[in-house]
Design a protein around this nucleic acid. Structure first.
Lengths: 260, 260
DNA sequence: TCAGTTTCTGACCTTTCGGTCAAAATAAAA
DNA sequence: TTTTATTTTGACCGAAAGGTCAGAAACTGA
């Protein structure tokens, strides 16, 4: 599952996650040798790595790479610091793993353009997916934002390859729609920036949004309204008619999978 | 000039800046006693404080509060670290000053809504000003973004007062325009978020934008195009007709001052 | 049961960083 | 010139952080 484009170090471990409640040090009950991933040392290792990654994502998001400390992360994961360093030898290795997870989530949303023929569907689906990511993975988005804010020392080479290729391809698709008269003539890149900015704002700046919402996070209804409005303004703005009857959170593109 | 809403400590010093080339330790030539701000100790102090603030803004933007070190800042300002601590007793005090400067710049753009009667003019002017800030003060914007990303520990109380009040007022203005049928019925808050996100993206994520621009910063022409497009998409998106002949970077609002 | 392997963890080391200090240097006042 | 106030600076300190290590604990297979 994990592509490991960014990470180059150690411990693979595809995520499956039938995570049962208690994780640490349960006495082995009936160790089936045929199912090595469900019980025993392999499972313990996987569980602990996931525990650490989860905690790390949270701490890195809140404090940045430098601001985060391995002690904090270990404490959040309820493990001794030395144990954390047993699984992830350095802070940077751990950070790269966190970034890698986020990148894979991002890639998933990016597929929207491949699954849709018409710009109306493509943009609706893409914006919707990006908004859902901001809702469901705000921490990951923040780590990402933080990384780019600080000159992307870790994902630098990725940006020059994968991101650039992806963007160039989508620019061509959008330009094709423009040439076909399906949408207003805009600069596709600047349009993509607007979509990225608007959708990720709900993750990266959620603290500000909450403050302006009387200190409370947006309710599901409010968030759906925000999503619908983002879609409506952008689509209208690029000359694509928006039917008011169209359901917002439905994904009109071919593939019906959940945006994660 | 400095409102000092956020900072509570020491050393006022309004910016004037007739900054001549060499700054450090020039032998006093003809010390006029009548002009205390141009020569002598007062000037040295002001110059050094500005030097440090400039360097600090840059370093804080690039590395965040925790990531930045006073040594780095001092080195960038070409002063010994101990001298930096003479002017700014703590790293946090310096940080607050930097934030304060950015806040004042932000306030300036915020006035667009007060200077315009019609939504077309108000939004055009506001977006234009915000874009110019992203162009001319990217470092400040990054410090700001970083602060909110990390739960705004420093500007927390400001957000609950000044920012909230400002937002509430503009929401009312926008709602008035909607009620008058001058623009499409949208949620004013979410519209503001979209404007903030889009405009600030060009500062906060400029590293990504540069990478996707073959490693080079946007030229002035490209940036003007981005600005024009942001204005066009948003205005069209909220049902305000955009004349293609309207000059983009002209400020249509009453006050003709430069956006800084 | 027992040897071999993997996991766990408190204690420790080294480096870095924010901040202090006392003395030297410079400017202003008397 | 002498005195006083301000500024500059190298050297230093304590705290915190990333990372190591050796021995203890636990699991695995025979």
């Amino acid at each position: 599952m994990s592509t490991n484009i960014i990470c180059h170090s150690s411990s693979a471990g595809s995520s499956d996650g039938g995570s049962s409640g208690n994780s640490a040090r349960t006495p082995n009950q009936a160790p089936k040798p045929n199912e090595p991933s469900k019980r025993g040392r392999a499972k313990t290792r996987r569980d602990n790595e996931q525990l650490i990654l989860q905690a790390a994502e949270c701490i890195f998001a809140e404090h940045g790479f430098k601001g985060a400390t391995t002690s904090q992360i270990a404490k959040k994961a309820k493990l001794p610091k030395a144990n954390l360093h047993y699984y992830f030898p350095t802070k940077e290795a751990l950070y790269r793993k966190v970034i890698d997870r986020i990148f894979n989530i991002w890639l998933e949303a990016a597929s929207a353009f491949d699954d849709c023929e018409e710009p109306a569907d493509a943009f609706t689906c893409y914006i919707s997916k990006k908004m859902d990511i901001s809702r469901n993975h705000p921490m990951g988005s923040k780590v990402w934002a933080n990384e780019i804010l600080h000159k992307a020392p870790v994902i630098h080479d990725y940006m020059q390859t994968t991101l650039r290729d992806w963007t160039d391809n989508r620019v061509k698709i959008i330009q094709g729609w423009i040439d076909d008269g399906k949408m207003a003539p805009v600069n596709p890149k600047f349009l993509l920036y607007m979509i990225w900015a608007t959708t990720q704002h709900y993750a990266d700046f959620n603290y500000q949004i909450n403050t302006l919402n009387n200190g409370a996070p947006l309710t599901d209804e409010q968030f759906e309204e925000a999503k619908a409005q983002a879609i409506k303004i952008i689509l209208t703005g690029i000359g694509i008619p928006v039917g008011t009857d169209r359901s917002t959170d439905a994904t009109p593109c071919k593939s019906g999978e959940v945006p994660l």
